[in-house]
Design a binder for these strands. Structure first.
Lengths: 229, 229
DNA sequence: ATGGATTGTATAAAGATTTTATAAAGAATT
DNA sequence: AATTCTTTATAAAATCTTTATACAATCCAT
């Protein structure tokens, strides 16, 4: 366990990656690299770095999409590097959870200072894409749910519902909110949908579906997800 | 009771201050202002804001010095706004503890996005506000009430009533007001409803429901919620 | 201070609403 | 065409709200 911070560069331009590699390594960082969005997401999931440098102009997927996917679970700092200099792009990236945004070409000294600043502000958190709730495990990246280490077969709707719950552990989620998020704004009156799927989810994830420990009913309001510990 | 973040502007240019004031207030922030370094430091000390916007070109003292003095104890986000665009200035400010650095003239949309990002990182918006009243805890966002750290099971009506009380701690709430807010305008004569639910709430939240410490009867008028400390 | 009127509390059964369980019909996917 | 998933429907169970009644405390005029 070295105390060097490791930084993942996601950028398709070889030149930029080389420049960043040299700059960062001479500043005592561990550097890993990814060329495509897909590769980047896999690398972050397999070995979450202390910081991500993300280019918005990737060949396979929009950088904004990558950012959103990362932010579903990755809590470390993400700094955007991009040739796009419009206010729209900058605001969008920052609001999607980027910590900083530098327009290419950038000055390496400034980049390194901004990296230092971002790492300083980063709270070291668990930061694993796998969330544990007693005997229940939820992997938000792989979209895999396990009970007692056995993979559960959830339908798309069931998974969407469960992911909302685990991302908001402890909070009461109202019927309306859940219906809007899972089925869309036009379905906030279809309370019955929700009831059926809550029952199905409980049947799958609870030890005893008749005495649920994870999905708690808040009568007249909604449901709350709790961990048993 | 407002949860607006408050932002302190330290800048000697009246024009900039006015521009920032209008921009920030229209984005629902509370704004205060200081014209000199000295005034700025005093204001931060007297009432630490959630975020500081600091100009480097102050008349009485260098912005870098102000930054260093602030960082001796102030841990909230500081964003530098400056006409100085040299890498040296930027690196110096960031290494002195600034969270971000924008070169003037800046785009207001970008500034506001960077403010949101900085506040997000400072966990100002994210942590749900938990109100403490002795052994009683109320989390209005998660909709969870705890007594001695145990989650209480409140019905929807009980929770609505309690939330009115905690939002108006110390104030006498009249029977009429409570009936109108909880049951609706058509129920202001149903004093009995209120009495039943006050009794139920007391049974759940009070140490000794016969000698209530939180929900105090104001005979002939209404009820008042108090914290025991 | 006493007694009657008002205001407040305690309790529980009746009524209404909400939730669960179950399963069949309809869509979508493979 | 078969399988899986989603929607709709219905009945039963559980929970919550309303209503009713009895009793206690407080207030106020005598």
């Amino acid at each position: 366990m070295s105390n060097k911070a490791d930084i993942l560069i996601i950028d398709d331009e070889a030149q930029i990656r080389k420049l960043l590699e040299i700059t960062l390594e001479s500043n005592d960082y561990l550097v890993s690299q990814a060329v495509t969005a897909k590769e980047g997401l896999i690398k972050v999931a397999n070995h979450p770095p202390d910081l991500v440098l993300l280019d918005l102009g990737l060949p396979d997927e929009s950088g904004h999409t990558v950012l959103q996917k990362l932010r579903e679970w990755y809590t470390g700092p993400i700094i955007i590097l991009s040739v796009l200099s419009s206010e729209e792009d900058i605001v969008k990236a920052l609001d999607n959870g980027a910590n900083d945004y530098l327009v290419k070409p950038f000055r390496t000294g400034e980049l390194v200072a901004r990296i230092r600043s971002a790492l300083r502000g980063a709270h070291i958190e668990s930061n694993t894409p796998v969330l544990n709730f007693g005997t229940l495990q939820v992997d938000l990246v792989a979209r895999i749910v396990k009970k007692n280490n056995e993979i559960l077969k959830l339908t798309a709707t069931e998974y969407t519902l469960l992911s909302l719950f685990v991302k908001n552990e402890g909070k009461v989620l109202t019927h309306q909110y859940l219906l809007r998020e899972v089925w869309g704004p036009g379905y906030i009156n279809q309370l019955q949908y929700l009831r059926v799927f809550i029952a199905q989810l409980r049947k799958k994830i609870e030890k005893d579906p008749n005495r649920p420990e994870h999905i708690i009913t808040e009568s007249g309001v909604g449901y709350r997800f709790t961990s048993t510990e």
